[in-house]
Simulated scan of single mutants.
Amino acid sequence: MSVEQEVLTRSEQVYSPLGNYLRTVSPREDAAMSFSEVEEVISRPLPRQARQNVSWWDSVPKKPQSRAWLRADRRASVDLSTETVTFIFAVFQRGWSVEQLKRMRSDWLTFARGELADPRRLSHVELGWWEPHHVYLLHYPADAAYKVGITRVDSTRIAKLTGSRGRLVDRLEVANRWAALVVESHVLELVWDAWKQPDRFATGDQGETERWSDWLVPPPLSVVRDSLTEDQKSPGWEMSVFRRES
């Protein structure tokens, strides 16, 4: 997918002219710019933090300004005392591997099952993790992909992730986040063969690592839940505990 085809957030769009400019510079050359020159390119003043904090210029994909130069295969080296920044050519790579994700998900599943087996601990009640949750399945036709995820039943996350590009295919309510994690993990176990590598600039907050090609159609979420007969015997499976109102 080209940069022009990518859907940029509003914050990213502010700095996209900088990325466009950096693409015109030869990879064999560093692109040294004053802060004033950067402001001229993006047609607006830099935020105060850019002149006060070196960390604003960190080349990490979670920051919208960073993605502008990372997409142009550049890393920023800043000197606040002279108000200059040098963009050095360096191709950004991210190590999303299915093996790493499988290990991480396995750890999460083990922890969730531990919480369900001994609900007396009531871990993370203050975060709403023992409140009812939805496991949801989305389809993105343009990307030929499915996505599974979990969220509290009172959350707007499903609507945000669906947007204009996605469609809610299935939704299942369970008693708490731990039970939701078990169902979600089992869905992923069924679809790892079709897992889709996330974009190298994915931040993770859109659930990019829980997507797979839609040639593999998952079973209904209720069928997945009903297959988890041993998990449903756990004392905490049907247990909901709500946060106290302040």
Rank of each mutant, 00 (worst) to 15 (best):
P64W: 08
P218F: 00
Y136L: 00
D79N: 15
E12I: 00
Q232W: 14
S164F: 01
K160C: 13
V224W: 00
D193C: 07
W129M: 15
D193G: 10
L127D: 14
A72L: 02
Y15F: 11
P235T: 03
P218N: 02
L181E: 15
L172V: 03
T203Q: 04
V85F: 04
R23M: 07
F111C: 05
N53K: 11
K233E: 14
H124R: 13
P198C: 04
E184V: 05
V14H: 12
K160Y: 14
T156K: 15
F242I: 05
E230M: 11
L8D: 03
K233N: 13
A112L: 02
V187H: 06
A175K: 05
P219L: 08
E208Q: 14
R200P: 00
V91F: 09
G236V: 02
V169F: 13
A180R: 07
D73T: 01
L116Q: 02
V14S: 12
G163A: 04
T162N: 01
V224P: 04
P119G: 08
E189W: 02
S43F: 05
R94N: 11
Y15R: 01
R120N: 11
V25I: 11
D154K: 14
Y21H: 13
W69Q: 03
T151R: 15
A90G: 08
W178R: 08
R120W: 10
V241L: 12
F87H: 00
